[in-house]
Simulated assay, not measured.
Amino acid sequence: MKLDRPVTGGPCWTELGTSDLEAAKRFYADLFGWRPETDPRQEAGGYTVAHLGDAAVAALSPLYQESQPVAWNVSFAVADADAAVAAVQAAGGTVVLGPMDVFDIGRFAVAFDPGGAAFQLWQARSFPGAGLFNAPGALGWVELMTRAPDRVTEFYTAVFAWTVNASEHYTQWGVDGADFGGMVTMDEKFPHEVPSHWLPYFAVENVEATADAALQAGGHLLMEPMSQSPTRRIAVVRDPQGAAFGVYTAGEEG
């Protein structure tokens, strides 16, 4: 992505809800070199922040509700969570949680776009979001998988004022023209039971080596490593608990 820090309207954080927190901590620590730190407070519910060096890069948490799927989630930065929730509802989205305060670090809400993809809103206080983007092991791209491309394009541009860079093959989202993600239309190749969703991509030094390591650790490949350009390689992985994420060649942003 062409963003190197959290900005209003852009992705600022990604977090995994998983059925086996300890196994997930081991898997991603081995895969990306993350150092996980679990919040010891009982009210934090096992929320774990992963670090690269001193930078917070992602989070992992247990499933807090029976209906919550094992999945990666993407948060977008907003200046005012309450106003953003109102904008989501006015544009045809559905708010399912919040807005609510998270200790003294921020204000948070969970919503679904009109195509059924979940996303999160984050109003920062003491915690702005990820301290590192685009470096190996850090978030570098977010991709919306949807069956309603026209409707969700209208929705997200209304809610976040995203810029849209659309070609015949791919649509990219941006903040003031700085692209941070894209959109894929889910066609008949996608199983009917797979819902619309946001997919985070993490930068890696070597896509093949990362894919092989994920397989050796019990993961699965949803998309084999492939080239998007002479230097950019991507793959999509499902972790041992079932959460999907992408990897791409670090240094090939935007």
Rank of each mutant, 00 (worst) to 15 (best):
V102W: 06
P99H: 10
P99R: 07
A71S: 14
V96L: 08
V88T: 04
D101M: 13
A117E: 05
Q89I: 12
D101T: 11
A84F: 00
A124G: 05
R107D: 09
S67C: 03
F103V: 12
G98R: 02
G93Y: 13
R125V: 12
A77Y: 00
F112V: 02
A71I: 04
V95Y: 08
A86K: 14
E66F: 11
D104V: 10
V74R: 01
V78R: 00
A117Q: 05
V70Q: 11
V95M: 09
F127T: 11
F108T: 05
V74I: 09
F103W: 10
V70D: 11
A86S: 14
D80V: 00
V70Y: 04
A117W: 06
A83D: 14
G106M: 08
W122Y: 13
V102Y: 06
P114L: 14
G116W: 03
A124P: 13
G92K: 06
F119T: 00
I105W: 05
A118L: 10
M100G: 10
A71M: 09
G98I: 07
A84N: 04
A111D: 01
Q123V: 08
N73R: 04
G115Q: 12
F108A: 01
L63D: 06
F103H: 11
V102A: 11
V95L: 09
D113A: 11
N73Q: 09
F76Q: 06
D82P: 05
L121A: 05
Q65L: 15
F76N: 03
W72R: 02
S126K: 13
M100Q: 15
P114C: 15
V96A: 05
F76V: 07
F76D: 07
G116T: 07
G98H: 07
S67Y: 07
N73Y: 07
F127M: 13
Y64P: 00
Q89E: 15
D82R: 13
A71D: 08
V88Q: 03
Y64C: 00
A83M: 03
A71H: 04
F108Q: 05
G92P: 04
A117P: 05
W122N: 11
W122H: 12
